[in-house]
Design a binder for these strands. Structure first.
Lengths: 342, 342
DNA sequence: CTGAAAGCGCTTACAG
DNA sequence: CTGAAAGCGCTTACAG
């Protein structure tokens, strides 16, 4: 790899000890006499030795890497979580691999079976049943955790935002401003976030005794295009809602853009609230009221959880992995896209 | 790793051949008789064998991974390029590692020296001189390529957009609309993109005989905050420019947001043009006129270039790496944030 | 065309 | 506390 690779044997010769001793000096210094330890340390310094991870990992029967599966790397929401995960592993001897769900051709269990990874964090709750079954039969399921999204009915551990609570906060905020006619643009059909946010929204709307109209639940899919479509649906309505809760900030941007182009003012004519609080939400015009997810916490907790799972999987005495679900709190961020109904 | 790992030896036994033959069947099938090859293939299928990458890589003296160094994963501009790179390596036996420049503690040559990576793509042109020197002395410089950004005065190969041309297109577009008083919000001091875009901007402004005023070159740093600051500077001016060319879309958003909040209309009072064409540019209100960078091409070409560099580095007969700079074309995207001066 | 053997660079029981 | 030896799972000259 490098120009003149120095191996553990070279250090051993330099220090006048065996390779076993050098190895111990690096991993279990306590086992050695202070003098031998010092001698090895000097030899390491002189030779410029660096342990070869490929060899170490092979010997230790580990891959030294984890995979982060991202549904859409182009989405800044996910990439920030990826950043937090990456940061959590920085300085450890575990590398972070990434794969985009969109670029197919991957066969996920293959990463485990090929000895390329020790564990996986999936930000994608939409994995195929065949993938999940393959994890089970390959015996790697216990080294997988979900973050943000999860799989309904699966026992795989996950870290997620309190989506119901977020949706409740959104509706409550609109209600507090005086809104009664509240529409919702959902996420994609079948997505767990879609269900959770819609459920929270419906629950709060019911609790407050607000009118419930089916045509005010507009199916979206987190894409800009779906925000545009939803706006056009609303524009075409005879009696429009006075406020719209969008399942994501991106959707809210596209929705507002289309509404305003059509001469519908935000928030004077229609209030809009999003979900996520991505960075650009505060510089959109009008700035977007939204539900903030703690992306840093989501990423960090997922990383920690995975490390625990991997450790437990390697230790036959460890307790069986419980159905762990970690909730991360959400928070209402009030900006200028919401106001009292005109 | 998996439940019952099947090794090459198991396949050999099943097929009644040596492990060498199994290995050849997998990597150099042409060397074998059709019948032995078939026998091995059957045995592989029966046993469910998968080659262990850690072992193969150790034996072949490679790491089987490349590192992508990203200045800021939270920036959707970079993460899209990362997606393209990741896609380029999907299906190969090379994994893609990521590291965020921001989360320090990394010592980049260490990745090479530890045998963790075979090569690196840096999206960060701001690497420290000490890092670059370390690459050289470790003999790994020839397995590094830059994408988007690069290092001035370095001979390391790079793939980049034609930034000068983009800046020229931006100024020309504004001039075509009738603007004469054109301001520029720059990127961070010292950044190569900052220099290239400013140079292109100045050149075109001079070519067209437009007025050149120093206070219309406003120092920014690609951040939202710097866009806001720039807007406030402009608002405070006695004679404001009629158009502003921002060094990035993000900066343009923050700038427009602050201008409009202060009652300055875009584009009626001031036209704004960005650089990048990130996804949200078309749903900002007003939608943003900008210079599109082909992020997919940037990522894909960088990946290819790196593979070539790695191959050449492994082959002592390969020609010395030339100073390769690949330019990727840019394109003006006209939207609603620019118009004839009011 | 195929096999026996060495070895990639480490770690870790097993002795002492 | 330290060392000699085996072995992680592969690939590849070297013979034949």
């Amino acid at each position: 790899m490098a120009q003149k690779t120095v191996r553990i044997r070279d250090v051993a010769r330099e220090a006048g000890v065996s390779t076993a001793t050098v190895s111990r000096a690096l991993s279990n210094p306590d086992l050695l006499t202070e003098s031998t330890r010092k001698a090895v340390e000097d030899a390491v310094r002189i030779t410029g030795y660096r342990v070869n991870h490929a060899a170490r990992n092979l010997r230790m029967q580990r891959a030294g890497a984890v995979l982060v599966l991202v549904p859409n790397l182009g989405n800044p929401f996910f990439s920030t979580i990826l950043a937090a995960i990456s940061e959590s592993f920085a300085g450890t001897d575990t590398s972070v691999l990434i794969a985009d769900t969109a670029s197919g051709g991957r066969e996920l269990t293959g990463y485990f079976l090929d000895g390329r990874i020790d564990g996986m964090i999936s930000l994608d709750g939409g994995l195929a049943q065949s993938d999940l079954a393959a994890f089970d039969s390959a015996g790697v399921a216990e080294r997988i955790v979900f973050a943000c999204e999860w799989v309904d009915g699966s026992t795989l551990p996950s870290v997620r935002s309190d989506n119901e609570e977020g949706a409740r906060l959104a509706v409550q905020h609109l209600h507090d401003l005086g809104h009664r006619d509240i529409a919702h643009v959902t996420g994609p059909a079948g997505n767990v976030l879609t269900k959770a946010r819609r459920a929270g929204m419906l629950a709060e709307r019911a609790r407050l005794g607000l009118p419930s109209r089916d045509d005010w639940i507009i199916r979206g899919d987190f894409s800009l295009a779906s925000g545009r479509d939803a706006a056009n649906r609303i524009i075409a309505m005879k009696d429009r809602p006075s406020a719209v809760f969008c399942a994501s900030d991106q959707v809210a941007f596209a929705l507002m853009s289309t509404l305003m182009e059509a001469g519908v003012r935000v928030p004077e004519d229609i209030s809009v609230i999003g979900f996520d609080d991505i960075e650009l939400s505060k510089v959109y015009t009008p700035s977007l009221t939204t539900i903030r997810q703690d992306r840093h916490a989501l990423g960090c907790r997922a990383a920690q959880l995975l490390l625990e799972q991997i450790a437990a999987a390697g230790d036959p005495l460890a307790p069986a992995a419980p159905d762990r679900v970690e909730m991360v709190g959400v928070e209402l961020v009030t900006r200028q896209s919401t106001a009292a109904p005109g």
